[in-house]
Design a protein around this nucleic acid. Structure first.
Length: 510
RNA sequence: GCCCCCAUAGCUCAGUUGGUUAGAGCGCCUGACUUUUAAUCAGGGCGUCACAGGUUCGAGUCCUGUUGGGGGCACCA
């Protein structure tokens, strides 16, 4: 039974058969490339003082993305990761080899050897002396002019997006440079980069739902980490005074424009620092990276100019909520009174929510959207911050800040709680809140971590930065999917090993 | 998890108040062409209108369900 697009595939297969019949390997193992496309273009300007000299020998390779045939002469544009270059192929130069063009298609990889030249119209070209097929494409590429627009296909088949939409390469290159710049930043300040476990017995260190898995030999349930925090602090206990990790963490929660179930988190910890030191670190780090990657400490995010240069203003959470929501949190010390006040002001709130969650709602609704230019929101209520040390000046608040830009949270930091007994009671409180407020994400008791703290942890400043969001901010992307090469999508193929026939028909019964 | 929107050729998109045989550009196939630039010229439409039902004399179009995607809410970073 004919499939959709069958004819296109069949044509390519026929060409493959013809090539094989002529003894041509459609997938040869190697090709000696002497120049990338960009280097080949540069080779044309290799004369004294950058003067243009034709005739340099080059061997270039790439995917054939356009083809213009005039009968006994043809122009093919090939593309590699750096750019593209035109091949000028003539029958009287290539002889019988010219016929190979009949069996090439857009999307094929080819290698060509020849000399650099400019055509009559001024186009930099390789005058080809010999060329070979390097890999046959059995499926057609997306349309050459409009590119691939279908977002579903762009994410599911990212390679087509990369072939078709050049700007995706640029975003991903920026992402890579951002991560490199972060490493350089911490490395140069004497931090040690470390790796901590992804598979953990207790999914603690943040308030989130975990992915659950099972280890057969140990016969016990394990979790994918939701944060790296508690392991990094164990290293601080062990005397590694400055550590950081850039790692994937996993949260079993919703997927939307700024949430992916797995995302990249930077965490750093520094002994003898506090959250004020970390604020200075963040307001130095972010503009430095932006400058490194874009050449400027100002970025345009969705039409808004963001000035990332330090210093960033500090706004206390208490003050922010008073200013933007019109509520003085200190007047409402418990969940019930706060919920009552919120309802009175017409803010959606119920008595089934914890005080921390109510405050989070107030901040998320009234304060965060106002924080367009980079701002530190400081001193979070203790009940929202089970891993942060309480302020000596006011024990209702913790020495914690979050950094916002474009209304988006980009960093979270505290002066770390290092008193094991208080940490235990904070964890216990979280476990109790979990029982009382079902459905809320809360942190979990980690006994091994308490034991570590009992061995003594120096005063420490810690930091967490969502790398994907930082990349969004710096590259101007409004969806996290556009800074991830392979964002999570609902898979259409059945899991391996499930008893479903190859024709893939599963019918969920009614 | 809830609400709204979307799905037509390999790709990008049209498709009228339900009305003949489903439309265009690119791509593809055949032919012409030895300096083209989204090459051009002549010819060719290549389709399970996401899937399954329903209404109707008649469905790409209307209704229901399903799948996938997008946006919003909720949750989180």
């Amino acid at each position: 039974m004919p499939q959709r697009g069958d004819e296109l595939l069949r044509n390519r297969r026929l060409k493959l058969e013809r090539l094989l019949a002529r003894g041509i390997d459609p997938f040869p193992p190697r090709f000696n490339r002497s120049h990338t496309t960009a280097q080949a273009v540069a080779a044309l300007a290799a004369g004294p003082g950058g003067a243009e000299v034709e005739g340099s020998e080059v061997s270039v390779a790439g995917r054939m993305i356009r083809m213009r045939s005039m009968g006994k002469a043809s122009f093919a544009d090939i593309e590699d990761s750096e750019g593209n270059i035109q091949l000028f192929l003539r029958k009287n130069t290539l002889g019988d080899e010219y016929a190979l063009l009949d069996d090439l298609d857009l999307g094929d990889f080819v290698g060509a050897t020849g000399t650099m030249m400019r055509t009559r119209t001024g186009e930099v070209s390789v005058q080809v002396q010999t060329f070979t097929l390097l890999a046959k494409a059995l499926r057609p590429p997306p349309e050459k002019f409009h590119g691939l627009r279908d977002v579903e296909q762009r994410y599911r088949q990212r390679y087509l997006d990369l072939i078709s939409n050049r700007e995706v390469h640029e975003t991903m290159r920026s992402r890579s440079r951002i991560v490199s710049a972060i490493r350089a930043f911490f490395d140069s300040r004497g931090y040690l980069e470390v790796d901590t476990p992804v598979l953990v017995p207790v999914p603690a260190g943040a308030m989130a739902q975990p992915f659950i898995t099972h280890h057969n030999a140990l016969d016990r349930q394990l979790y994918l980490r939701i944060a790296t925090e508690l392991y990094l602090k164990r290293l601080i206990v062990g005397g590694m005074d400055k550590v950081y990790e850039i790692g994937r963490v996993f949260r079993n929660e919703g997927i939307d424009a700024d949430h992916n179930p797995e995302f990249t988190l930077l965490e750093s910890y520094e002994a003898y620092a506090d959250y004020n030191d970390i604020m200075r670190l963040v307001e130095t780090l972010v503009p430095e990276i932006a400058s490194e990657v874009t050449g400027s400490t100002t970025v345009i995010y969705q039409g808004t100019e963001l000035r990332l240069a330090s210093p960033w203003p500090r706004l206390s959470l208490h003050e922010g909520v008073k200013q933007y929501a019109g509520i003085d949190l200190n007047d409402y010390p418990d969940a019930a009174s706060l919920a009552g006040k919120m309802q009175e002001l017409g803010v959606p709130a119920t008595y089934a929510e914890s005080r921390g969650r109510l405050i989070d709602k107030l901040v998320g609704t009234y304060v965060e959207p106002k924080l367009i230019q980079p701002t530190f929101l400081v001193d979070y209520p203790v009940e929202m911050s089970p891993l942060a040390k309480a302020s000596p000046a006011d024990s209702r608040y913790a020495e914690r800040f979050e950094a916002f830009a474009a209304g988006m949270e980009i960093a979270n930091s505290f002066t770390e709680l290092n008193d094991p007994d208080i940490q235990r009671s904070r964890f216990t409180e979280q476990e109790e809140l979990r029982k009382r407020y079902q459905g809320e994400d809360l942190d979990r008791m980690d006994e091994d971590f308490i034991t570590a703290l009992e061995h003594g942890m120096p005063p420490t400043g810690g930091l967490g930065v969502g790398i994907d969001r930082l990349v969004m901010l710096i590259t101007g992307q409004s969806s996290i999917r556009d800074v991830l090469l392979f964002p999570q999508t609902r898979s259409t193929q059945p899991p391996p090993g499930t008893d479903q026939n190859q024709e893939n028909e599963q019918v969920p019964e009614a």
